[in-house]
């Protein structure tokens, strides 16, 4: 009861500003939905072209599970630490917030490093995006996800800089919440990359 009374007051005081920030978050949510559709097209392409190895290597020949398992748990942990960053934000702790965001993007950087070395090793063995339909689908799907993580890395880095300059304001608060959603979304997409590309590839 106390809660709903407080909330009504807050809406009256803030005079629509609160709603505008909510609307901006909803706009970002819509972007995430369209990004889901982008990935679904890449997944459909990958699954359809999976058998088309054109005499080149198949999934079982190119997948190195230890690296992939490490990538999976690193990204999963970074999704959790990005949540811890939001908890620090709720507490109003700028130090905690910046610290957890830094941990999150460091884990993100480890993920990108492992993935890059996996893809570069394939390329150096002569298995490139041009080798077969299967590898075209594989490189496009995995690298599009990796590109999203890289964008997230620089985006959160920029927000850490803004936080250290301006502190926790309504604007930086919204930005942290949006990047946190984005980061959880990347982990959610990776679950399907891990399942469909790697687990189904080696089973």
């Amino acid at each position: 009861m106390t809660h709903s009374a407080n909330h009504t007051n807050e809406l009256v005081h803030e005079d629509g500003h609160h709603d505008l920030e909510e609307l901006r978050k909803f706009g970002f949510w819509l972007f995430l939905i369209t990004d889901c559709i982008l990935f679904s097209v890449l997944f459909a392409t990958f699954v359809v072209l999976r058998e088309g190895t054109a005499g080149g290597p198949g999934p079982k020949d190119i997948i190195e599970m230890p690296g992939v398992i490490a990538e999976t748990f690193i990204l999963l942990t970074s999704s959790f630490t990005s949540g811890l960053a939001v908890l620090s934000l709720n507490k109003g702790s700028r130090q905690g917030l910046i610290g957890w965001l830094a941990v999150t993007i460091l884990l993100g950087a480890c993920f990108i490093g492992l993935e890059m070395s996996e893809l570069l090793a394939l390329i150096s063995e002569g298995h490139t995006i041009r080798t077969s339909a299967f590898l075209s689908g594989f490189f496009t799907l995995v690298a599009t996800h990796g590109l999203h993580v890289s964008v997230g890395f620089f985006w959160i880095l920029a927000i850490i800089l803004q936080l250290s300059r301006h502190g926790i304001t309504p604007v930086t608060t919204r930005k942290v919440q949006i990047t946190s959603l984005y980061w959880h979304f990347l982990d959610a997409v990776w679950i399907f990359v891990f399942s469909v590309v790697y687990l189904m590839g080696v089973m």
């Binding site: 809660h3 949540g83 811890l84 939001v86 908890l87 608060t173």
Partner: peptide, 16 residues
């Protein structure tokens, strides 16, 4: 929680 973007430590820990 409602004001600042939701969530609690137990919730995140269970999810993790």
């Amino acid at each position: 929680a409602n004001e600042g973007g939701h969530g609690s430590l137990p919730e995140y820990a269970i999810g993790f």
